[in-house]
Design a protein around this nucleic acid. Sequence first.
DNA 1: TAATTATAACTAAACGGTTAGTTAACACTA
DNA 2: TAGTGTTAACTAACCGTTTAGTTATAATTA
Lengths: 349, 349
Amino acid sequence: MSNQVRLVDIAKLAGVSKVTVAKVLNPSPGNRTNVSETTASRINQIAAELNYRPNLAARQLAGGWSKMLGILIDAGSSPNEFQRVSHSVRAAEQYGYRLTIGECHNDLKNIRAYLNDFASRGVDGVIIHANSFPSLNADIVKTAGQLKQVMYYDQPICDDGTLDFVHVDFGGGVRMLVEHMHMRGRRKIIYFAPYPRSPYGKFRSQSERERGFAEGMSACGLKFAPDFAGRFLYDRMPVPTEIIKLAMDLIRQDKPDAIIARNDECAAIVLHAINKLGMRCPDDIAVAGYDNLAFSEYTIPPLTTVDNELAELSKLVVDNLIAKIEKKIPVDQPVRIYRTPKLIIRETT
Amino acid sequence: MSNQVRLVDIAKLAGVSKVTVAKVLNPSPGNRTNVSETTASRINQIAAELNYRPNLAARQLAGGWSKMLGILIDAGSSPNEFQRVSHSVRAAEQYGYRLTIGECHNDLKNIRAYLNDFASRGVDGVIIHANSFPSLNADIVKTAGQLKQVMYYDQPICDDGTLDFVHVDFGGGVRMLVEHMHMRGRRKIIYFAPYPRSPYGKFRSQSERERGFAEGMSACGLKFAPDFAGRFLYDRMPVPTEIIKLAMDLIRQDKPDAIIARNDECAAIVLHAINKLGMRCPDDIAVAGYDNLAFSEYTIPPLTTVDNELAELSKLVVDNLIAKIEKKIPVDQPVRIYRTPKLIIRETT
DNA sequence: TAATTATAACTAAACGGTTAGTTAACACTA
DNA sequence: TAGTGTTAACTAACCGTTTAGTTATAATTA
């Protein structure tokens, strides 16, 4: 409602000045000093009776903090982008912070617009899903730098050593899959990743996964097609029917005994292709995905995959961001966290 | 940064008062009157040079509006809860509004806390995912009513005719599935919905789907087990392995030629069960889901389902909410929109 | 030419908090 | 008893906008 209860209203009823009321009702630490117990409880009671709600705009204007974080994402970049948001919301909630979403379709103009909006709104900090933006360049990072505090969710490609981030080791995840396949006796392992070619270059997670595959293969003493990295690059995101065909061709030509797909969706399509060719998984070909999406448990057969453990990851992001905002950790010292994902073994391998 | 450019800074450089600057830079309609073209362009130029960003907290405090919407959800209630959020964010963006998320795990205390927080933050309006909250009662709705403008995403159970909502016809969706099965020659159709029993009663979508099934069956002149509605109620959300077993038992006992599952996840599990029993879909049993989740295209075989068309639905929600906020439609006249979902026919039927 | 209207600016007062600096009363110490 | 410290309050100024009301000048009308 418009006729809100204000500090002065309570002050009048309690017979004190509004500053005294503010001291009691303001949660900021160490501010409750110098108010007598009796006055404080009287004020608290009146505030509860009137259902007082602080006007956060006023508080922000005077105090300079908003208890609000901005989060910059690209929903189209990954099916679990919102998992990250959801977990971040919950983590922030613990500290009394809220999140506002910027959804920017990987468009530079939108990214800038949202960063400006975040600044206008006076958010205390910003989370940027770095991996969603191959277009993220030094220029954007500088714009972002004008904000009070920025935390990158995954290490940005243009990191110069000064940025704060929490990164999940995509490469290590794929490497674990390769080693797992090797232990299961597979030798002709193929990495299947029909990516769109971005005008801005590869996604970081993309090149890291390829590197992880290469490392895993050579660690196991296996060979891999040297051109695998550029093999399936498309000018746009290929549609499922195209991917099915691609997968079928691949299986017929290369006759692999194991396929590691770029992600679970892709793996589901590979399962499809195997099925269509009258072959069986894992008997003829083992398959693995990446991401541990909700449906991966229900594929036929249930999919072996890698879980980034987004709940824990998001919590690290938010915890560290808020710690910096509230100066509980040194502000000038960059946060650089690498985290290992988890292998989920099911029935496709 | 803390040393922001302010209206007065621009005013000083332009040699005018800050009010004149505000008139030029404030986007509110009809406010640009009475400023000469030359002055306006000079101000605009200076503002651009200094990279002026309005302080929205100050604007909100003085102006009474925030260009911010709150959205109250329960991420656990549905795998596509965040689809709704994502589409709402995009729709709101068109009008220059932002969203802040309240994720409240269907807990009354959290719901109240978030509604209070929204009020404190002075959001211009609130979207409540009514279907996520079977616990949504008149009391909560009243609390919500203290907010400026509230739009329910799906009709709340406790609607008394005065609430604003945009509702998708779940019942009609299931009915379409029944009729589709009937046209395909199926006669022993079963509705498979292992729901958790909520202490607050059924989800609205749940009872509506059951009603839709019943209507569809009788419209086709088919019989259905009269106890179907209460047949699979659990004390908690059953885990996938339990559902597989349940589905296998069901198929063995009732020998249906078609199963309509409560949603796509459930349908994927039914496909699993059919597979395990050595039967084939759709040859032996046709299967359908509901929701058209991303993976439903990749199940084996691809799943027939119903699509709520969340993009369009979300747009209706946001469009109408903002129209009310900006008084472009009568404020005292409730918005009550029902929308029909879309049948997606694939290869399981 | 005097009166009226329109234009383009201005000043002052909110909006609801926070922060810094001040004061009165009282208790303790030297 | 004068000086010092502590407690619990207060007053004044400020945060960056918006809104309402006012004024000086120029253009139009009678």
